[in-house]
Amino acid sequence: MSRGFVKEEDQEEAPFIPPRASLPAGVTNYVTPVGHKQLLEEREELEKERRELNIDNDKERRHATAVIDGKLNLLNERIASARVLQPGEQPKDEVRFGAKVGFKFLAGTQAGKEQTFQIVGVDEADIKARKIAFLAPLARALTGKKLGETATVPMGGKLQELKITEISYS
Results as ranks from 00 to 15, higher is better:
Ser2Cys: 01
Arg3Pro: 15
Arg3Asp: 15
Gly4Tyr: 09
Phe5Gln: 01
Phe5Asn: 02
Ala14Asp: 15
Ala14Met: 13
Pro15Asn: 14
Pro15Ser: 13
Phe16Tyr: 12
Pro19Asp: 11
Pro19Met: 09
Pro19Ile: 09
Arg20Phe: 15
Arg20Tyr: 14
Ala21Val: 03
Ser22Arg: 14
Leu23Lys: 04
Leu23Ser: 03
Leu23Gly: 02
Pro24Leu: 09
Gly26Asp: 14
Asn29Ala: 05
Val31Thr: 14
Val31His: 07
Thr32Ala: 08
Thr32Arg: 07
Val34Tyr: 10
Gly35Pro: 13
Gly35Cys: 14
Gly35Ala: 13
Leu39Pro: 01
Leu40Ile: 02
Glu41Gln: 12
Glu41Tyr: 07
Glu42Gln: 14
Glu42Leu: 13
Arg43Gly: 03
Glu44Lys: 14
Glu45Pro: 06
Glu49Thr: 08
Arg50Leu: 15
Arg51Pro: 00
Asn54Arg: 15
Asn57Ala: 12
Asp58Trp: 00
Arg61Cys: 10
His63Ala: 05
Ala64Phe: 04
Thr65Glu: 11
Gly70Lys: 04
Gly70Asp: 07
Arg78Glu: 03
Ala80His: 13
Ala82Phe: 02
Val84Ala: 04
Gly88Thr: 11
Gln90Ser: 06
Gln90Thr: 00
Gln90Asp: 06
Pro91Cys: 13
Arg96Thr: 13
Arg96Ile: 08
Phe97Tyr: 09
Ala99Pro: 09
Lys100Ile: 11
Gly102Arg: 08
Gly102Ile: 01
Phe103Val: 05
Phe105Arg: 09
Leu106Asp: 09
Ala107Ser: 09
Gly108Ala: 03
Thr109Glu: 06
Thr109Pro: 01
Thr109Asp: 01
Lys113Ile: 03
Glu114Thr: 06
Phe117Tyr: 10
Phe117Trp: 09
Ile119Met: 02
Val122Phe: 10
Val122Trp: 06
Asp123Trp: 10
Ala125Glu: 08
Ala129Phe: 01
Ala129Trp: 06
Lys131Ala: 11
Ile132Asn: 06
Leu135Asp: 01
Leu135Ser: 03
Ala136Gly: 06
Leu138Lys: 01
Ala139Ile: 10
Thr143Arg: 11
Lys145Cys: 08
Gly148Met: 02
Glu149Cys: 02
Ala151His: 03
Ala151Gln: 05
Thr152Arg: 02
Thr152Ser: 03
Pro154Phe: 07
Pro154Ile: 05
Gly156Glu: 07
Gly156Asn: 03
Gly157Gln: 00
Lys158His: 07
Leu159Arg: 15
Leu159Pro: 10
Glu161Phe: 11
Lys163Pro: 01
Lys163Arg: 06
Ile164Lys: 04
Ile164Thr: 00
Ile164Asn: 04
Ile164Leu: 03
Glu166Met: 05
Glu166Tyr: 04
Ile167Val: 08
Ser168Thr: 11
Tyr169Gln: 00
